[in-house]
């Protein structure tokens, strides 16, 4: 089984985010960069599959130079090699263009499975896994909560549906699967893993290696801003019974803290 895991470097949730004066980018010097949370679960799932069925796990990231760190972390945790896709012309591209770049970088590898996190904590597009499936002609599943390899050409994926429902689907391989956080317990890099990183290879991909049409963005950013905080106060009136009924309804449908 040859598995690729896509890992994105994103700002830590605890970082204070400041917007640059031109309102187009973030001020980066106060940001702590980490691996995207759900990508960590995708990596763990891939490593578990490898431990069970053998094969190879390749970690791949697209990002600035600092993003090499997420590959190092993945290699330390047990990925066999890395693919680092980076070029200044990739900055500010939209998810479809990035998908094309990644697809052309991964095409010749003929992966059985591409795993990615459900969604990146910064942009939150949740599209990359799907786009890659489309471009590389793979079957796909999203919101993966569990995986089970059936045989060399089939994998079963447990998907999360609405309302607390789950569904097991069978996919033919190759497949692109996006993984939900919490599906497993990601491991911590062992000392040996960390020491072995320097023995593993990382292939580099730059703009020269990808199709030219990928380098155009279909989206332009006009302005980045912090959403205005608006307070909305609702008064519920009526008899205690009516009030509690309305409250339950609000909790269930608007605030969604009840099922």
């Amino acid at each position: 089984m040859k598995i690729c895991v896509l890992i994105k470097q994103v700002p830590d949730k605890d970082s204070s985010l400041n917007i640059s004066d031109d309102h187009l980018t973030l001020v980066e010097n106060n940001i702590t960069w980490v691996s995207n949370e759900s990508d960590n679960y995708a990596l763990e799932e891939a490593l578990l599959l490898k431990e069970k069925h053998g094969g190879e796990v390749i970690a791949c990231t697209l990002g600035k130079d600092s993003a090499r760190q997420v590959l190092k972390d993945a290699l330390a945790k047990g990925a066999d090699r890395g693919i680092f896709i980076s070029d200044s012309s990739f900055d500010n591209l939209d998810v479809l263009s990035l998908g094309k770049i990644i697809a052309s970088s991964l095409e010749k590898e003929n992966f059985d499975i591409i795993m990615s996190g459900l969604q990146s904590d910064d942009q939150g597009n949740s599209q990359l896994g799907l786009i890659l499936a489309e471009l590389l002609n793979m079957s796909h599943a999203t919101l993966g909560m569990g995986t089970e390899v059936v045989d060399d050409s089939t994998i079963k994926v447990k998907k999360e549906l609405e309302g607390g429902w789950f569904q097991w689907t069978k996919l033919s391989l190759p497949a692109s699967i996006s993984i939900q956080s919490g599906i497993n317990s990601p491991r911590y890099a062992t000392l040996k893993g960390i020491m072995m990183v320097k023995k593993k290879t990382v292939d580099e991909v730059t703009s020269g290696d990808v199709a030219a049409d990928a380098l155009e963005s279909n989206v332009t950013i006009n302005k980045i801003y912090v959403p205005d905080k608006t307070k909305e106060t609702q008064f519920i009136e009526g008899s205690p019974d009516e009030i509690s009924e309305k409250l339950v309804e609000l909790f269930r449908n608007d605030i969604k803290v009840l099922n």
């Binding site: 830590d12 605890d14 491991r187 911590y188 000392l191």
Partner: peptide, 22 residues
Amino acid sequence: QVLVEGNVPQEYQKLFTNLQNT
């Protein structure tokens, strides 16, 4: 657990990453 097994509760992994990064 930490150095050999890589088996570390998630909240401690976060703590360690914080220590390493910041």
